Simulated assay, not measured.
Amino acid sequence: MPFEFKIIDKKRIDDIIPLVEKLNEKSVSYAVLKDRFSEMINQNYECAVIYDNEKLIGICGLWFCTRHYSGKSVEPDHVFIEDQYRGQGLGKQFFKWIYNYVKEKGCESIELNTYATNYASHKFYYNEGFKIYGYHFLKKL
Rank of each mutant, 00 (worst) to 15 (best):
K92Y: 08
P2D: 13
V20E: 00
Y69F: 15
S73W: 14
V32A: 05
D14H: 14
C47S: 07
E39L: 11
I50K: 13
N53H: 15
F137A: 08
H68C: 12
E21M: 12
G71I: 10
E104D: 11
I81C: 01
D14P: 00
D14I: 13
V49G: 02
F94P: 03
V49T: 09
F5W: 11
K26G: 00
T114E: 01
S29T: 13
R86S: 01
N113T: 12
Y99Q: 12
I110Q: 02
G71H: 11
K140F: 00
Q84H: 07
H78Q: 12
F80A: 03
L90C: 03
G134C: 05
L33M: 12
K140D: 00
P2R: 13
Y119H: 12
E46H: 05
S109M: 08
I41M: 02
I41T: 02
I8M: 05
V102I: 15
L19P: 01
D77M: 04
N42I: 03
R12C: 09
K26F: 07
I8A: 04
N44L: 06
T114K: 02
N53V: 12
N113P: 00
E39H: 06
K131S: 13
L141Y: 11
I50A: 03
I17V: 09
F64H: 09
Y69R: 15
D35K: 15
I132C: 07
S27L: 09
Y30Q: 12
I7V: 13
S38Q: 14
A116D: 04
Y45W: 09
N127C: 07
C65V: 00
Y69T: 13
E128V: 05
S109F: 14
V28Q: 11
F3N: 09
L138Q: 10
K26M: 00
P2I: 14
Q88R: 14
D15R: 10
L23M: 04
Y101W: 14
E82H: 09
K105T: 06
Y30G: 03
S109K: 13
K92W: 06
D9K: 14
S38M: 03
G87N: 03
I16C: 05
E46T: 02
Y125P: 01
V20P: 01
Y135A: 01
I132E: 06
Y125T: 04
G89E: 07
G61F: 08
E75M: 14
F5P: 04
R36Q: 12
C107S: 10
H136N: 10
Y101V: 01
T117F: 03
P76Y: 05
G106H: 04
W63C: 06
L23V: 01
Y125H: 10
E39W: 06
K34H: 11
N44W: 06
Y135C: 01
T117K: 03
F137L: 15
Y125R: 08
V74H: 02
Y85T: 01
N24Y: 10
G89I: 07
E75L: 09
F37D: 01
I13T: 01
Y135E: 09
I16M: 07
Y99H: 14
K34E: 11
K123H: 11
K6H: 02
F95T: 10
S29E: 09
A116V: 12
L19V: 06
G58H: 06
H68A: 12
E128M: 15
S70R: 15
W63Q: 04
Q88H: 14
Y99N: 15
R12K: 15
F3I: 08
H78Y: 10
